[in-house]
Simulated assay, not measured.
Amino acid sequence: MTQLTPAPTGPPDEPERTARAALTRILEPGDERGGRWLREFGAEELLARLTSEDCTAKTLPGVNERRAQGLRARAVAVEPERDLAAVHAVGGRFVVPGDAEWPSQLDDLHDARPVGLWVRGRPDLRKWALRSVAVVGARACTPYGAHMAAGLGAGLAEHGWVVVSGAAFGVDGSAHRGALAAGGATVAVLACGVDVVYPRGHDQLIGRIVEQGLVIGELPPGDHPTPSRFVMRNRVIAALTRGTVVVEAEYRSGSLVTARNAQRLGRCTIGVPGPATSGLSAGVHELLRGESVLVTDAAEVVELVGGMGELAPERIGPVVPRDLLDPVGRRVLEALPARGAVAVREVARGAGTTVDEALGKLYELHSLGFVERDGEGWRLTRGPGLGSNARRGGA
């Protein structure tokens, strides 16, 4: 894709903002041809061309006459001042490139970057996006998927990270709820207007996100989602965040689209494993067979996307008494049979050491409760003590 020219210094003026607001109702999200026009002509000039009676394929290079007329039909009907008033009425705002709140990482999308973002919520989007992670996955997720998504959302919030998702049923909703329950920060990226509740069943959830976090989208107020808008929405989730975690996904899944967008943008792509027999884990496992990284909790996610020193705790099994023995002591212990007593000479032979060294180690093991004397021989401790379990590495 063509590289963007540097953003102008200082915030955009009101005509530029108004023109971009109008363009969000004319151009579909992710329209690279429209993005190229915007880069080459500027927002005000592009809007003038789209609304002109002379709007043709000559004034809009790269499209045929039918497409040019279709865009003009959209353009002449827009009322950007009304859209700006509508978002202000619900406590929102319209953020565009050049604003202090604009997340510059979205510029990595080049000509496919958003024309602008409609935003609801009090926090600063740019600052929140600096430490953000996407958690996405299947809408019809399993209880395991919902549990993992909620745990990741809560864990990331507790580590000071912003959880970004799409407010859909299933994994998305669970991730948002996990972050909210932990008193953390979360951002919902919608494929519709920020004043539209979709899905309707998430009315309360989206309301809570508006109060505690941010709801953002490329579509103007009142616009409704379509299948293609969901797909294009995913590129914003990928570009906005440091990495994308996929919890459950089938082979054909919007979550995999998000992850592949993240890979193309050089972001971390991360997968949570599931049962090999589950179709909802098949897409995640396919990612993990490639360049994605397997994680099981939020600390491991933070280790991948965070800064130097943000490491997950070392994962080790429980330390058992046998782990504390020196190598010779372990060999002497292993030389004792599971049942019955043996002479020191046999122990030394089995441990590959001298009789004197074997005897010394047997007395050490006796003081630690591993072995006991039995006449002229030695045996493993009997009864409920350490006994044969300790010899084999148990408690």
Rank of each mutant, 00 (worst) to 15 (best):
E303Q: 15
G375A: 06
P80Y: 01
A140V: 02
G393S: 10
N389V: 08
A312M: 10
G91I: 03
G35R: 04
R339L: 15
W102Q: 06
P12H: 11
V63K: 11
R177Q: 09
G352M: 09
L190V: 05
W102P: 00
A75C: 05
V187C: 00
Q69R: 12
G350M: 13
E372Y: 03
T5E: 12
D374M: 05
R242W: 02
G10P: 14
A249F: 01
A77Q: 14
T354H: 02
T354D: 06
G137A: 02
E14I: 08
C268H: 14
V189R: 02
N389G: 15
R289P: 06
D195W: 01
L125R: 08
E291C: 12
A112K: 09
G394F: 13
A299I: 05
Y144A: 11
P227K: 10
A185H: 14
P327M: 05
G183Q: 11
L333M: 14
R233T: 02
A185R: 15
I216L: 15
P220N: 09
T258A: 07
A259V: 10
P12A: 09
A75Y: 02
K127Y: 02
L304H: 13
A167Q: 12
K361C: 04
G387H: 04
H224Y: 07
A351P: 07
D31N: 15
D83W: 10
L380N: 05
V371H: 14
R229L: 05
Y198N: 07
H88A: 14
V115L: 02
A179S: 08
E16G: 08
E32S: 11
A298S: 12
V210Q: 14
A73Y: 11
G151P: 11
V332G: 04
V305M: 15
I209Y: 00
T142H: 03
A22T: 01
